[in-house]
């Protein structure tokens, strides 16, 4: 299981057609959160064929990468609505009372929340708050 990683990217609001044909540089994960809005995690540069498109840096989210057994064990039982079966797929909604975005890939699930909810995610889903390496460093520092 992985510690949360900060997910930086671009948020783009544009016409649905322009978003269908948008291009993002690099290794990106694109969340189509509404017909006229995407969040492209990992993107720094975007080309959107819409002269009125709004492109803004998006730095508010954190995510946990979970294997499917981990997802089933820790998260799925808190979700009270049908999960998508196709891959990849985005699902947005409430889980354990928190607004989450779930990105289903073939071999893992990315659990994304606004960073203001990160501590609640840790508490409610029993997910790790820190990377193992950070924990070890902290322990060493405390001993010294």
């Amino acid at each position: 299981m992985h510690a949360p990683e900060r997910l930086d990217g671009l948020r783009v609001v544009a016409t649905p057609d322009a978003l269908d044909h948008a291009w993002f540089e690099g290794d990106v994960v694109v969340f189509r959160i509404a017909h006229d809005e995407v969040i492209a995690f990992g993107a720094v540069v975007a080309e959107v064929p819409d002269e009125h498109a709004i492109v803004e840096r998006e730095t508010a989210f954190v995510g946990w990468g979970l294997s499917y057994p981990e997802f089933d064990d820790l998260v799925a039982r808190h979700v009270e609505w049908p999960l998508p079966t196709e891959r990849p797929a985005l699902a947005q909604g409430m889980a354990a009372g928190l607004p989450v975005k779930l990105w289903f890939e073939h071999d893992r699930v990315l659990l994304v929340v606004s960073s203001g909810f990160a501590h609640e995610v840790v508490e409610r889903f029993r997910l790790p708050a820190f990377a193992e390496s950070v924990k070890k460093q902290d322990t060493r520092r405390m001993r010294a």
């Binding site: 959160i33 509404a34 017909h35 009270e80 609505w81 049908p82 699902a91 947005q92 909604g93 409430m94 607004p99």
Partner: peptide, 10 residues
């Protein structure tokens, strides 16, 4: 229309 069926609490 975007996200599918969800409980009203959302």
């Amino acid at each position: 229309p975007n996200c599918g069926s969800r409980p009203v609490e959302e």
